[in-house]
Amino acid sequence: MVGVRVRVEQTPLPGIGVRHDLVTSSGRTVGVVSHRNGRRDLVLYDVDDPDACLASIPLTDGEAEALADVLGASLMLGQLAGLRQQAAGLLTEQIALPAGSPFVGRKLGDTRARTRTSASIVAVLRDREVIASPGPSFVFEANDVVVAVGTRDGLDGVTAILAGEHDD
């Protein structure tokens, strides 16, 4: 991840749902009000009166998904491009999970890939979808493609681990 982890605050709205909001580094506050009936409002806060919403934009399921996709995908690409530029020795590789991999149905954390190879798994491609920055509890499925960033040796190590060749 680039930069510090962003703090998202969660506030229950009894009888309505829940509100998530975060303060951006530019000082603006953005939030999402998730209604219990599935409706979502994207809310932008006033600069002069940070307690009030300047705009509250209702989003349908499809719209929310599309917005999340746009934000998520551009972030992923940006991160990958940035990494490539920053360090010449760092490589990005897509590694398909072999059919006989011992990690099908197991957690990403079980691979201990980062500890053992110092390469990071930054995304998983599944059914033409990008799952960005999967956590240690992410569970692999057959036909997953892992996007890893690391040195040549590190990436080879990840390939070997996923194939079940690294037994230690």
Partner: peptide, 28 residues
């Protein structure tokens, strides 16, 4: 009236406001 107030807050687009959880807690 929690019914009337919840409706007013929704109509005025204030559900995301920072004082709204306070209002709702009082109603609850």
């Amino acid at each position: 009236s929690s019914g009337v107030i919840a409706k007013v807050l929704g109509d005025l687009g204030r559900l995301g406001n920072r004082e709204t959880p306070v209002i709702l807690s009082v109603l609850v």
